[in-house]
Design a protein around this nucleic acid. Structure first.
Lengths: 205, 205
DNA sequence: CTCCGGCTCCCGGTTTTCAGGGATTTTAAT
DNA sequence: ATTAAAATCCCTGAAAACCGGGAGCCGGAG
């Protein structure tokens, strides 16, 4: 029985590429594709594939969140993360949210089919680069509170503590405390270093 | 006579996707592909296609630079930028360096073939989103001097003016001047805002 | 109920940045 | 040789950030 594969990716060319790569494969059945999280979820309501290839950057929802949602609703669907980037933080969060594998978009046909084959049998597949990135596990993902995110965003916008305090209707010292906590969480020496890593981790737009 | 199309992109799946999209087209001849700037240049030394589809994010060289080099060596090769991102700065710099078009990776088959057709006849094609992004022409690309880049990098690393001064063997006031100039060039209120945009513009790693 | 995390607020003191000037020397291009 | 841009250096004063504490309030989990 062939493995049913569905793909969600907002880049039409990537969908085409994967379809073309998998077309010839005997054990794989093309289940369909979606270009957004919403239409992916809509499809899943009617029908569940065995393996779901999922881009991490979707227009309406992050792949991380979509993955969690999918695994919650349909635990039997195995998810493989798909991305151009080889960022530990992404890969890690993806796996934490129930993904079974992670493949980079420059993967070869062999890699992809092997990944699908392994994952459909309940195993885990990580591309070499991905597993390597996971081993570099020095930075665990920084978890911020609601308030800290707000403050961080405003700091990144160039506001001073004073201005932030006024905007959030709190005291300057409160903002300063949040700032201290942010510096601690990011293990940053100052705001410059903090913003740098925050932007790279995509915690600020 | 068919238009010869060559593609350079480090993502195998995108190459496959485009190949599959163009396969059926009558007027288009698949000239080959490369996964790095180096092998693209190697190919061009032997043979020149009519149209060169070029990813902006290459492993060994930025598409921006590759585009400039290609146009300098082989002005008759028309370049179409290819990217997942819709960032004005990229598009603009690509066009400044001689590209004839810019297509997003979620383009449809029609869009892509139209782009190739237009560009091969010496015209310009910008995807809707790209041309729209270009219209938002508020931010011209920030040009930094050698020294400013160094200082910016060190600021982003979290060093203070004092530390930077020691590292670069110059006076603190010099570093402060560079800092001021950076703030002015980025039109940033303070370092937080500066670093934010600098990272987003990929001027710091 | 108790404990913990998040949010709030405060103090005192030091360091750094920012906003204004102005000025000289190197370097590269015409 | 001239010129312009880059790089260097200096001053002052105000504003902001950073440091290392302490402390009360609340809501949810155990």
């Amino acid at each position: 029985m062939a493995t049913k594969v569905f793909i969600v990716d907002d880049h039409y060319m990537v969908i085409e590429g994967i379809r073309s790569l998998l077309q010839a494969e005997k054990g794989i059945e093309w289940s369909g594709h979606a270009q957004s999280a919403a239409s992916c979820l809509a499809f899943l309501r009617r029908e569940q594939p065995d393996v779901l290839l999922m881009d991490i950057n979707l227009p309406d929802m992050s792949g991380i969140d979509l993955c969690r949602e999918v695994k919650q609703l349909y635990p039997s669907v195995f998810v493989i993360g798909l991305s151009t980037f080889n960022q530990q933080s992404f890969i890690q969060r993806m796996m934490e949210n129930g993904a079974s594998g992670y493949v980079l978009k420059n993967a070869t046909q062999e890699e992809l089919t092997e990944a699908i084959s392994l994952v459909s049998r309940g195993k885990t597949y990580l591309s070499d680069e991905a597993s390597h990135a996971l081993r570099d596990n020095t930075h665990q993902p920084v978890v911020l509170t609601r308030r800290e995110k707000e403050v961080l965003e405003l700091i990144a916008d160039g506001l001073t503590n004073n201005e932030i305090a006024q905007k959030l209707f709190v005291s300057v010292t409160t903002v300063d405390t949040h700032r201290k906590n942010l510096l601690a969480k990011f293990e940053a020496k100052n705001i410059a270093a903090l913003i740098r890593t925050a932007v790279k981790m995509q915690l600020v737009k």
